[in-house]
Nucleic acid binder design. Sequence first.
DNA 1: TATAAAGTCTCCTGTTACTGGAATGTAAAG
DNA 2: CTTTACATTCCAGTAACAGGAGACTTTATA
Lengths: 128, 128
Amino acid sequence: MNISQAAKLSGLSVKTVRYYADIKIVEPARDIQSGYRSYSNDDVAKLNFIGKARRFNFSIEECRELLSLYQDKNRSSKEVKKLTLAKIASIDEKLKEFHSLRDELSYLVNCCNGDDRPSCPILDELSK
Amino acid sequence: MNISQAAKLSGLSVKTVRYYADIKIVEPARDIQSGYRSYSNDDVAKLNFIGKARRFNFSIEECRELLSLYQDKNRSSKEVKKLTLAKIASIDEKLKEFHSLRDELSYLVNCCNGDDRPSCPILDELSK
DNA sequence: TATAAAGTCTCCTGTTACTGGAATGTAAAG
DNA sequence: CTTTACATTCCAGTAACAGGAGACTTTATA
């Protein structure tokens, strides 16, 4: 199938699918006549896989790893679990950061009258 | 003072301070002899302000807005509060996303034996 | 005072994961 | 046969810097 079919089936944009071909993560065959990319069902499965992994916040490089583990029928589940645990840990860090940011900002917002006068505790805090 | 002094006082890197000069958010005077950037205390205060706002996850463009509000003695606190509330809302969105990611991933991790056998529910999920 | 070391300058590249657009070629529909 | 839709490559832009090269200035040491 051609690229727009593959894109539709995988839920990705044509641009993205082409990009994945450029960076050699999903390399389709080529139609010799037209030069058009020609995607197999297997290619689409890989695109799907990557799409899901990206939604799980895995980076492209991590997707590459997961994909090669996925294709290696002898891999141990240990390796996959390790990658996933690391991802969870990094998400936890971000969560912590954003939580404390949120708390500080909402504290400041609560202190701020939000009226037409110039006095503003938010700016005061930022300038300290 | 020269750039490394300003960087030290504001807790930013020299590269960052120079970058802020390039994008015209904090533009120091120049020493005519050497061409070196010359920072005033006021410039350092702005750098500090921006550093803090960045740590609060405000983008450079938002910093620009906050800075001009900060310098406008007649601004209303309403405007600042509005910006800050929008920032909180966007942080909340990210928090929600990351929370659900975390939950899904840790669910998968708990399903995975993490042993030397190939069977892996994580990869199974990604390939669905 | 000569020289070396440290600091600064500008300019260019790379980062992440794409998106948008231009110029051009191919395929499908009427 | 022409229009339209889709495809291709290549280049630029995004956010917010970091790293590094090559050249110049200032400061410290011998």
